[in-house]
Amino acid sequence: HAATELTPEQAAALKPYDRIVITGRFNAIGDAVSAVSRRADEEGAASFYVVDTSEFGNSGNWRVVADVYKA
């Protein structure tokens, strides 16, 4: 099962156990969220919340930071 994305309210009520950072070329924010979901799932997380997204220069590469939560 894939890790689910939390709302800001849900994330605020929970304590993350880790923070992950992924970088890559994403065509849309949805693609980045899917990549975070896969990584969170690999780490055994039940859910995640994207904290920050930023573009690296003009290369089209993105850096996505997310907190991950157990259950």
Rank of each mutant, 00 (worst) to 15 (best):
40 A>D: 03
48 F>D: 00
11 A>C: 07
52 D>Q: 13
38 R>P: 02
63 R>P: 00
8 P>L: 12
4 T>F: 14
6 L>V: 01
6 L>R: 02
57 G>Q: 07
70 K>C: 10
7 T>E: 04
5 E>L: 10
40 A>N: 04
18 D>I: 10
1 H>Y: 12
31 D>H: 06
42 E>C: 12
6 L>K: 01
46 A>C: 11
59 S>D: 14
20 I>G: 00
1 H>A: 10
48 F>N: 00
35 A>M: 08
7 T>Y: 04
42 E>A: 12
16 P>D: 00
20 I>S: 01
4 T>P: 04
37 S>I: 12
2 A>T: 13
7 T>D: 06
48 F>M: 03
52 D>H: 13
22 I>E: 01
63 R>W: 07
64 V>E: 02
19 R>Q: 06
16 P>W: 05
61 N>A: 11
46 A>D: 14
13 A>S: 13
23 T>F: 14
64 V>Q: 00
67 D>Y: 14
44 G>T: 04
5 E>W: 07
16 P>E: 02
69 Y>I: 03
71 A>G: 10
29 I>D: 05
25 R>Q: 12
21 V>M: 07
51 V>S: 02
43 E>Q: 12
63 R>H: 08
48 F>Y: 08
30 G>L: 11
23 T>S: 08
1 H>T: 10
53 T>P: 01
50 V>T: 01
66 A>E: 02
45 A>Y: 15
69 Y>G: 00
65 V>P: 00
25 R>M: 12
4 T>N: 09
36 V>H: 02
26 F>V: 02
71 A>L: 11
46 A>R: 08
16 P>H: 03
67 D>R: 01
27 N>K: 10
31 D>E: 13
48 F>E: 01
60 G>V: 06
51 V>G: 00
11 A>P: 02
40 A>P: 04
15 K>N: 08
36 V>R: 00
6 L>S: 01
65 V>D: 02
3 A>D: 02
49 Y>T: 03
33 V>M: 13
5 E>V: 06
44 G>F: 04
33 V>K: 13
9 E>W: 10
68 V>Q: 01
50 V>G: 01
42 E>W: 08
1 H>M: 08
58 N>A: 13
17 Y>D: 03
45 A>N: 02
71 A>P: 11
20 I>Y: 05
12 A>R: 11
47 S>E: 03
56 F>R: 04
23 T>A: 05
71 A>W: 14
50 V>F: 03
46 A>W: 13
36 V>M: 14
41 D>Q: 15
11 A>M: 04
20 I>A: 00
34 S>M: 14
10 Q>H: 04
13 A>Y: 11
65 V>M: 04
43 E>C: 13
54 S>V: 12
5 E>K: 07
65 V>A: 03
29 I>F: 11
29 I>A: 09
4 T>K: 14
27 N>V: 09
38 R>C: 08
10 Q>Y: 04
16 P>C: 07
13 A>L: 14
46 A>K: 09
64 V>M: 03
5 E>G: 05
55 E>W: 12
32 A>T: 04
55 E>P: 10
46 A>E: 12
32 A>Y: 05
33 V>N: 03
42 E>P: 00
42 E>V: 07
35 A>C: 10
41 D>T: 15
3 A>L: 07
10 Q>E: 11
4 T>E: 09
1 H>K: 10
35 A>V: 06
58 N>H: 14
59 S>R: 07
62 W>E: 03
31 D>Q: 07
41 D>V: 14
59 S>W: 05
5 E>M: 13
49 Y>E: 01
23 T>D: 05
21 V>S: 05
16 P>N: 03
10 Q>I: 06
19 R>P: 00
68 V>P: 02
69 Y>H: 02
62 W>V: 06
57 G>K: 07
14 L>F: 09
19 R>W: 07
57 G>I: 06
52 D>R: 06
19 R>A: 02
9 E>L: 10
71 A>T: 13
27 N>I: 09
47 S>F: 15
40 A>M: 04
68 V>C: 05
43 E>L: 15
47 S>Q: 10
67 D>K: 03
66 A>P: 00
44 G>Y: 04
24 G>N: 01
41 D>L: 15
33 V>C: 09
46 A>I: 10
34 S>T: 12
47 S>K: 04
12 A>V: 08
43 E>W: 13
26 F>I: 02
42 E>Y: 08
31 D>S: 06
20 I>F: 05
28 A>Y: 09
21 V>Y: 09
40 A>G: 03
71 A>I: 13
17 Y>S: 04
62 W>N: 01
69 Y>L: 01
37 S>E: 06
42 E>T: 06
17 Y>F: 13
56 F>V: 12
62 W>I: 09
7 T>F: 08
25 R>P: 09
62 W>R: 01
32 A>K: 02
8 P>T: 14
64 V>W: 01
69 Y>P: 02
22 I>F: 03
41 D>G: 15
10 Q>M: 07
6 L>G: 05
23 T>V: 14
59 S>V: 08
7 T>Q: 05
8 P>Q: 13
56 F>D: 14
40 A>Y: 03
27 N>C: 13
52 D>K: 09
11 A>K: 03
26 F>C: 07
29 I>Y: 14
55 E>C: 08
44 G>E: 05
65 V>T: 09
10 Q>C: 14
27 N>T: 11
60 G>L: 05
10 Q>N: 04
71 A>K: 10
28 A>W: 09
30 G>P: 07
21 V>A: 03
62 W>C: 12
53 T>R: 09
54 S>H: 14
6 L>N: 03
22 I>T: 00
27 N>Q: 12
21 V>F: 07
26 F>T: 00
65 V>K: 01
63 R>Q: 11
63 R>E: 08
15 K>M: 11
47 S>Y: 15
6 L>D: 03
42 E>D: 09
16 P>Q: 02
53 T>A: 15
3 A>P: 13
11 A>F: 03
4 T>G: 06
46 A>Y: 12
40 A>E: 05
9 E>M: 09
17 Y>A: 01
45 A>K: 01
9 E>R: 07
17 Y>N: 02
14 L>W: 07
38 R>V: 12
29 I>T: 04
29 I>L: 13
27 N>R: 09
53 T>Y: 15
3 A>K: 03
10 Q>A: 08
24 G>D: 04
69 Y>M: 00
54 S>Y: 15
65 V>C: 05
50 V>K: 01
32 A>E: 01
44 G>M: 05
38 R>D: 05
16 P>F: 04
67 D>H: 06
68 V>D: 02
40 A>L: 06
54 S>P: 01
20 I>L: 07
3 A>M: 06
60 G>T: 05
4 T>Y: 14
71 A>R: 09
6 L>H: 03
37 S>H: 09
21 V>R: 00
14 L>C: 10
69 Y>D: 00
25 R>V: 10
19 R>K: 03
53 T>N: 06
16 P>V: 03
26 F>Y: 07
44 G>I: 04
62 W>L: 06
43 E>A: 14
39 R>S: 03
66 A>Q: 01
24 G>H: 04
14 L>E: 04
24 G>M: 05
43 E>T: 12
22 I>Q: 01
15 K>S: 08
23 T>C: 14
28 A>V: 09
51 V>D: 00
29 I>Q: 08
45 A>D: 00
51 V>M: 02
38 R>H: 11
16 P>A: 07
49 Y>R: 05
26 F>P: 01
29 I>S: 06
32 A>V: 12
49 Y>W: 07
4 T>R: 13
59 S>L: 10
61 N>L: 15
35 A>K: 03
14 L>T: 06
62 W>K: 04
52 D>M: 13
69 Y>R: 00
53 T>W: 15
32 A>P: 01
42 E>R: 09
59 S>C: 09
